[in-house]
Design a binder for these strands. Sequence first.
DNA 1: TAATTTTGTTAGTTTAGTCTAACTTTGTAA
DNA 2: TTACAAAGTTAGACTAAACTAACAAAATTA
Lengths: 218, 218
Amino acid sequence: MYSLAEENYLKALFSMSNDKGEVNVNDLSKRLDIKMPTVTSMMKKLAAKTLVHYERYKPLKLTEKGRIEAALIIRKHRLTEMYLVEKMGFGWEQVHEIAEQMEHIQSPEFFAKMDELLGYPKFDPHGSPIPDKKGRMIWATYSKLSECRQGDIVKIAAVVNTSDEFLRFLNSREIHLGLEMKIKSVESFDNSMVVNYDKHLSEMLSHTVCERLLVEKI
Amino acid sequence: MYSLAEENYLKALFSMSNDKGEVNVNDLSKRLDIKMPTVTSMMKKLAAKTLVHYERYKPLKLTEKGRIEAALIIRKHRLTEMYLVEKMGFGWEQVHEIAEQMEHIQSPEFFAKMDELLGYPKFDPHGSPIPDKKGRMIWATYSKLSECRQGDIVKIAAVVNTSDEFLRFLNSREIHLGLEMKIKSVESFDNSMVVNYDKHLSEMLSHTVCERLLVEKI
DNA sequence: TAATTTTGTTAGTTTAGTCTAACTTTGTAA
DNA sequence: TTACAAAGTTAGACTAAACTAACAAAATTA
Ligand SMILES: [Mn+2]
Ligand SMILES: [Mn+2]
Ligand SMILES: [Mn+2]
Ligand SMILES: [Mn+2]
């Protein structure tokens, strides 16, 4: 239906809108590593296909149709990640690059089967919500670990800005989704935390790490 | 490494060489539904990349390097088909279109995992051999069912020219790989056969069907 | 062998998606 | 409030992969 390039612009627009509200040509250009004039001309093309509202010098906005198309691509990405982890035994740090390619596969039957075999999961291996077949996505309301206090007991619900390096760091500390931890202390000078979970009785986590972990308070 | 278009030319060249020996620009043009001048210019490009031996007005030939690259794409195609049938529950008539897309995915780890989960299969769901990691492919020596005689007992080993319609026809008669059948009679005027297998005590198969079934004699 | 058909090549055009260079608009800071 | 910087657009060029039209070579048929 849409080209690989078009799909990548739609997906980037969608997730940047969710992160920051307004998306400018310059932001999109940096995100995709594509020069601004190229982005401008693609926006005109997507506007002609009624996927984007485009007005010269104004922030970019997906149309409802564009939002749905983007969500359906992200659905394929996240279902794939979940399948790779749950059914094929990959680690959560190994699946993103494969999913980047698989998300462009055109086969409703293939993704319907994945969904069925997985038991219709609501979240991917990084805790991000999987949009439904109509492109609707429910955002759970998690807190950053960094916003929690000494004594709080929390459950790890999702990771944000999931780079391979960060995920491997979490692996090395045996931190995974669903893990419960208690906050033993918060250092006031650098906002680092000392936490306690499983066999890790006193693990230090930097503020940078705590900002990237989303948790549910218990 | 190579573009989608380049990979599709390599794959077509490979399987046409196996089928017919010599491959001409015209044959390739018809197979890919791409006009001859486009094929000629792509052959020059692939020759520059030492994947094809190209000489004006001469039949086309893959280089050793080209043969290996093509076999590795076919390996990904056939592993995918096998995975879809064995691990996801698709029918053998449903998997080709999905595999056409998946064969272009760049991820050695992904296909290595498939291979492992499948137990290193040697054949795909249609009985075609799966090339190994180095691009080597063993062709088993099967006979066509149409070349067998009255009284022969044979086992279905592979199907040739696997169209969805043909595979659905085989489904409707409960004919599948590994099935053993006995040839009850051969009609001399149209070369159709009456065969006997499982609960099918007297099933008539046309010559066209018998030519498309490869068997092992028992 | 000569004529005709089929096959293949060359030359030039098109579209998608990228780029750089030059210019314009908008936002910010003196 | 003017000057400068940042962001955005326009114009024009390039590459990959397709096409058509015209011509050339090879194969087939008469
Ligand atoms: Mn991902
Ligand atoms: Mn994810
Ligand atoms: Mn196939
Ligand atoms: Mn097959």
